[in-house]
Design a protein around this nucleic acid. Structure first.
Lengths: 105, 105
DNA sequence: ATTCAACTTGACAATATTTGTCAAATATAA
DNA sequence: TTATATTTGACAAATATTGTCAAGTTGAAT
């Protein structure tokens, strides 16, 4: 497997690497430091807009960060579901089927 | 692919097959007929509890219905996302990795 | 064409969840 | 200790979800 760091881990790592404080980054996001702290520790989820901004502020690869973010959203959705893994596979099938259809195949 | 009917289609088909009216089924669910109508036509989502009850009332395979229900929830979550499909795959990988870990491998 | 039952629609209300603030508590370091 | 950074939890505001209701539409049977 490639990279398995959570969004929060990625954010905190990079922020510290850059020597930025919560207050610096949260100011740019226009939120309280408390929320960013929670996001970094996985206690709260960021929203899409914040993820984009964070990628920019911290020079993180935007696509990688968004993919990890969406993946966590999906996993959150099915975290207590026995049938979650099955549902994931069905969802993939249904996306693929749709792609096919809409590309004229 | 096996079965690609949406939750709504499954519900309406089976309800009509059984000769039940919206009012019969919605009474058992303790909601207005309007909502059930919308659920069947895909205009609203049911919640988990309702899905379970509906499977019972309509003699639908509970597992199949729940899987389709969860799949639709997942797809809804990423419907406007370019990176949705990628995120789905990452989510699967991460579930698998977790399974491994927690089974002592 | 009128009537009747089933269903649909959309405006709105209630409730739940998400997203945020703030102030106090806890580290960490000088 | 003092100062700064982070964390915590109670609460408030904003948003999304879930529901009701009443009026509108549809279709079948007079």
């Amino acid at each position: 497997m490639k990279n398995s760091r959570s969004v929060g881990e990625l954010l905190r790592e990079k922020r510290e690497e850059k020597g930025l404080l919560l207050r610096h980054v949260s100011a740019e996001l226009d939120i309280d430091t408390a929320i960013l702290s929670k996001i970094e520790r996985g206690e709260r989820k960021a929203n899409k807009e914040q993820i984009i901004k964070l990628a920019e502020i911290l020079d993180l690869n935007k696509e990688d960060l968004v993919v990890q973010y969406l993946s966590e959203k999906i996993l959150y959705e099915i975290k207590d579901e026995e049938l979650g893994e099955k549902a994931l596979k069905v969802a993939e099938q249904q996306i693929k089927y749709n792609n096919k259809k809409n590309s004229g195949q």
